[in-house]
């Protein structure tokens, strides 16, 4: 999971970023199946199906369709020089995040596996904040959603509404990529945020 997040961070082209986010969702779906086999909680199996179907396939397919509408391979402007340093920042964040988790959260949560989604949340914020392309920012949102649902399944697998949480987040994801992003592309003719700077003050 963390390697896939660092791979997302290292890409300058949009297509592989989307594919990496899809792969991460499929890995998470597999982890949910493993957790189901351990605990027997049927909710985890439904969660695996939703994760694989919506975040692993549907949303990435719609996003790749958005990329193809531009009729060329999309590369984020200005990422060439920034990406290597962002990967280094990402690695530092992984180490710092783990250290913070071990000192502050582990004594309370007493489950070291939660460090993985904790670090993933930090990496997803880094991706959203540092990237300019709306599609890449969207992969950051998918990564954050993966991380929080993973945390939920690890911390409190019996929590009610976990499936509902996932469904609402996925509906939001579909609205983001399917509707808002389409409108952005149609009206602004770009998905790069330097063009999205009309609003100031």
């Amino acid at each position: 999971m963390i390697l896939s997040a660092l791979y997302l961070q290292s890409q300058t082209f949009v297509d592989p970023t989307i594919r990496a986010a899809a792969a991460q969702s499929l890995i998470l779906a597999a982890l949910f199946v493993v957790l189901f086999l351990q605990s027997g909680a049927a909710d985890l199996l439904y969660l695996a199906a939703i994760t694989a179907g919506i975040r692993g396939v549907l949303i990435p397919v719609v996003m790749l369709y958005q990329v193809r509408r531009f009729k060329h391979s999309l590369r984020e402007s200005g990422t060439g020089q920034r990406v290597p340093s962002l990967v280094i920042v990402g690695v530092i964040l992984v180490i710092a995040g783990y250290a913070l988790f071990k000192t502050a959260l582990l004594p309370t949560l007493s489950n070291p596996s939660v460090s993985v989604p904790f670090v993933l949340v930090l990496l997803s914020f880094l991706l959203i904040v540092t990237r300019r392309n709306a599609l890449t920012q969207m992969t950051g949102f998918l990564e954050e959603e993966n991380a929080v649902l993973y945390a939920g399944a690890l911390i409190a697998p019996s929590i009610p509404l976990l499936i509902e949480f996932a469904v609402v987040l996925d509906i939001l994801g579909v609205v983001l990529v399917g509707v808002i992003l389409s409108a952005t592309r149609d009206v602004l003719r770009t998905l790069e945020s330097p063009e999205l700077e009309q609003l100031t003050g």
């Binding site: 997803s124 914020f125 949102f141 954050e144 952005t184 009206v187 999205l196 609003l199």
Partner: peptide, 13 residues
């Protein structure tokens, strides 16, 4: 449209 994108992404995150 720009405001809608910012709103949805920031608030969702």
């Amino acid at each position: 449209v720009e405001a809608a994108w910012r709103y949805t992404l920031i608030v969702s995150a």
